[in-house]
Computed example of a mutant assay.
Amino acid sequence: MARFWVYRLKSEDQLVVDLQSDFLQDLPSRVVAPLHPIEQVSWTIAPLTPRFVIGDRTYVLATHRLSALPLSALGPAIADLSPRADEITAATDFLFQGF
């Protein structure tokens, strides 16, 4: 598992972004936030819910809905968002610090 990579969950057609430090890769779980297709999102707050194009669809990162999942719940990696790490980190900072 790698931080800022997008994974498809094994149990459902849901994408998540791994937010957990790679330093903690030996833990049996990962902290993730879901990605929702933009057309399914009724509201966004720019610093909290950044947008990403994956394949041919635009997704919103629901940072405020983060959770810990067991490694066994994560399916294949489908995209690398690490080039946008600063934006994702800013979203988690906004969630926890308000700025």
Rank of each mutant, 00 (worst) to 15 (best):
M1C: 09
M1W: 05
A2D: 13
R3S: 02
F4L: 05
F4M: 03
Y7L: 01
Y7F: 13
Y7H: 15
Y7R: 02
R8T: 06
R8H: 10
R8M: 11
K10A: 14
K10T: 14
S11R: 15
E12M: 08
Q14F: 04
Q14K: 14
L15S: 00
V17P: 01
L19G: 05
Q20N: 03
Q20T: 05
S21E: 13
S21W: 09
S21L: 13
S21K: 11
D22P: 00
D22M: 06
F23V: 10
F23N: 09
L24M: 13
L24F: 14
L24P: 02
Q25V: 04
D26N: 14
L27K: 09
L27H: 04
S29A: 14
S29M: 11
V31H: 07
V31L: 14
V31E: 08
V32S: 01
V32M: 02
V32H: 00
A33M: 09
P37R: 15
I38W: 04
I38R: 10
I38F: 07
I38T: 09
E39C: 06
Q40G: 06
S42A: 15
S42T: 15
T44G: 01
T44V: 15
I45H: 11
I45T: 13
A46L: 09
P47N: 10
P47Q: 06
T49V: 03
R51G: 05
R51W: 02
F52E: 04
F52L: 08
V53Q: 15
V53P: 00
V53A: 13
I54S: 02
I54K: 03
G55R: 07
D56R: 13
R57K: 12
R57L: 09
T58A: 08
Y59M: 06
V60K: 02
V60D: 00
V60G: 00
L61C: 04
L61Y: 00
T63R: 01
H64D: 12
R65C: 10
L66P: 00
L66G: 03
S67Y: 07
S67W: 07
L69T: 01
L69Y: 07
P70S: 13
L71Y: 06
L71C: 13
L71M: 12
S72H: 09
S72Y: 04
A73C: 10
L74N: 04
G75W: 00
P76C: 07
A77M: 11
I78R: 05
L81D: 01
S82H: 12
P83W: 08
P83T: 07
R84C: 08
A85K: 14
E87I: 14
I88E: 01
I88C: 05
I88F: 05
I88T: 00
I88S: 01
T89D: 09
A90C: 10
A91E: 02
A91I: 04
T92G: 06
T92P: 05
D93M: 07
D93H: 10
F94S: 04
F94K: 10
L95V: 05
F96C: 08
Q97K: 15
Q97W: 10
G98V: 12
G98T: 13
G98S: 10
F99Y: 12
